[in-house]
Design a protein around this nucleic acid. Sequence first.
DNA 1: GCCCTTGTTTATCGCTTGATCACTAGTTAT
DNA 2: ATAACTAGTGATCAAGCGATAAACAAGGGC
Lengths: 227, 227
Amino acid sequence: MSRKALPKGGRTKQKRLSPDDRRKEFVAKATEFFSEEGFGGATRDLARRLGVTQPLLYRYFPSKDDLIKEVYRTVYLEPFDTAWDRLLADRSRPLRSRLKEFYSAYTKVIFTRKWLRIYFYSGLKGLDINRWYVGMVGDTILTRIVRECWHEAGRPARGKPTAAELEMAWVFHSGIFYYGVRKYIYESPVLEDKEQMISDAVDAFLAGFQQVFAAAATQRTPEKLPV
Amino acid sequence: MSRKALPKGGRTKQKRLSPDDRRKEFVAKATEFFSEEGFGGATRDLARRLGVTQPLLYRYFPSKDDLIKEVYRTVYLEPFDTAWDRLLADRSRPLRSRLKEFYSAYTKVIFTRKWLRIYFYSGLKGLDINRWYVGMVGDTILTRIVRECWHEAGRPARGKPTAAELEMAWVFHSGIFYYGVRKYIYESPVLEDKEQMISDAVDAFLAGFQQVFAAAATQRTPEKLPV
DNA sequence: GCCCTTGTTTATCGCTTGATCACTAGTTAT
DNA sequence: ATAACTAGTGATCAAGCGATAAACAAGGGC
């Protein structure tokens, strides 16, 4: 695919973008479109939104499904930031502070109507990419968080978190995640101050995690805590 | 292909139900159907699943949308149990125990593939019924939980929970809720023992809530806790 | 100027959809 | 039996869908 060099002159007219950029433009608009209409949205409507005719889409994408696949790619892969794991693992700072900063950044990326809706549409479609995403969150972010909790509690780093520990991190993570769902999908009133929500959730999680796992020390029998 | 009438003798077949029952049967199967296919599912496919022809649906429901509305009704209204609020408010038992029992019962109802999928399909469609449901959870269940937390902490019952308190209950509630989403929508591996997940989540919530609100006593400035 | 390549539209095909109507089969009442 | 009523079907319509092919428009290099 030879990308043609852009014309030298200051072309302010947006006509005739490079094929690659035009394609990207299509995918970007398609993401917006499908996030509103669902993947059942008609290609004709999408084309109208793009200001072109419907058959043109088929010059850039072999089929509607291929277009949708590219939409997934840009939604799921693009925003993912590898710096996040470094942030969470940076033991020169207190874990509480790391967690707050991480969730502040993470939610800045995924708390958009577009992202969340695409996420659920693909989830309901039963796509592998969704399971992949969930697995990835568990294996990287949450595993890291549990590990840092161990370290904070002065316990030696074992291999992998137990299922119960990971589940607790999931409950915490999901609680924050669902704030975005309530706000951007249900458009239901939420605490306006997102940062405070995160701050409170992190504080509660750290206290709760310690209560449930650290306090009960090395071994823990279910229902051991005071009823 | 006309189906020949079966011989009358030994008719165990359930043909000719009462019109009302037949209608209910249709709605029940339609709920299953739409929960899998989404509301874009074709009426012909639904009819095939019912073992009847497609035009027959229109004898029972004026339009597809009307059928869908009835599906909502049975999904959202039927399972709701008013005894839940009494359970949460029963101060003869420790709050910890009440919460665990409530979430055990609540999740027993909504943690099904059918319920959760219909819930999200309607949520993405932007239906009022979904906002109503979210509002109802906040106004009854979560408000009640916060109030009981006050009482448990020995604080006088004020009027309505603050937005921050309610938000914290939401994060807790959503964390549990999302366990079901991960399990039944994403079909991703979760902690097998649901009761332990609930137990841990409740323990963590109670510890966390106290930490964030009770410990900080009457007034609380954001970011006051040790960073 | 010309041609060749690429971007875009017009027209259309084949199929599926929700919905309607005229008709048949099955049950009940007389 | 037979009339009357209702449950259910077959055929079909108009609209909308994804996709294709052929015609048309617009550069860019020579």
